[in-house]
Design a protein around this nucleic acid. Structure first.
Lengths: 113, 113
DNA sequence: TTCTTATATTTCGCTATGCGAAGTATCGCG
DNA sequence: CGCGATACTTCGCATAGCGAAATATAAGAA
């Protein structure tokens, strides 16, 4: 069941998904991946290499900020928080996504009944 | 106004768009590009290099069939027709697209439960 | 006539992102 | 102890959209 969508379709949606998931609260990498999987009913999955490299890039762009936490009795985790810039990007990406899907639906002939 | 969408977002939508446009009738490359632009209200544009290479790939996969037409008083054009296989792929891609957008909307909280 | 614009297609190298595969390491459970 | 889940790293590959330039013809303006 999982991973039913092509890599090409998924391309470019990672940032939107991660930023959305981090909008409510700070989360660590593994948690972000699992949450996307959970919220999509197991339909949307990204490989760990994809997820972590995306997080790395997004931090480099200043959209998110990572903080390492090492607690006894737990593995080391990097918790990410949305920055102000990240919040702006999220708003833009949401709008772009909505607009894009509407336009594609228009062209491929999905009628708004 | 034109080309407002990122290349990453557009990635993977070309096949769906072309197949959709060819569903009704046979068209040549340039016409397909212009039609996508027109139907999207000028919001969705693909570069010629992108379009023609996509057509080439799709013909190689047997989704469309090209036929060269040279009429006096006209430039040479390659008219593409949807194959049976292409029609099957179109149905699959439409379903994948609908499902994917629904899942992403779910995760990013468009309906927001 | 000449110049410009729209039509119509080709080629080639660049880039970014998702994927596959492998590796490191810790914790809990039977 | 072995196994699976957790948590993250690294590295190379494949591919589709883009940019830029080239080729060529028809129509209309200057």
């Amino acid at each position: 069941m999982p991973n039913v969508f092509s890599a090409d379709l998924k391309r470019g949606s990672m940032a939107l998904l991660v930023l959305s998931v981090l909008d409510a609260e700070t989360r660590h990498g593994y948690e972000i991946g699992k949450l996307i999987e959970l919220r999509s009913g197991g339909k949307l999955e990204f490989k760990v290499s994809t997820l972590y490299s995306a997080l790395y890039r997004m931090e480099g762009k200043g959209w998110i900020k990572g903080r390492w936490v090492e607690k006894a009795g737990q593995r080391r985790r990097c918790y990410y928080t949305l920055t102000d810039k990240g919040r702006d990007i999220l708003a833009l990406r949401r709008q772009e996504w909505t607009s894009f899907t509407a336009v594609v639906n228009e062209v491929i002939g999905v009628s708004h009944a």
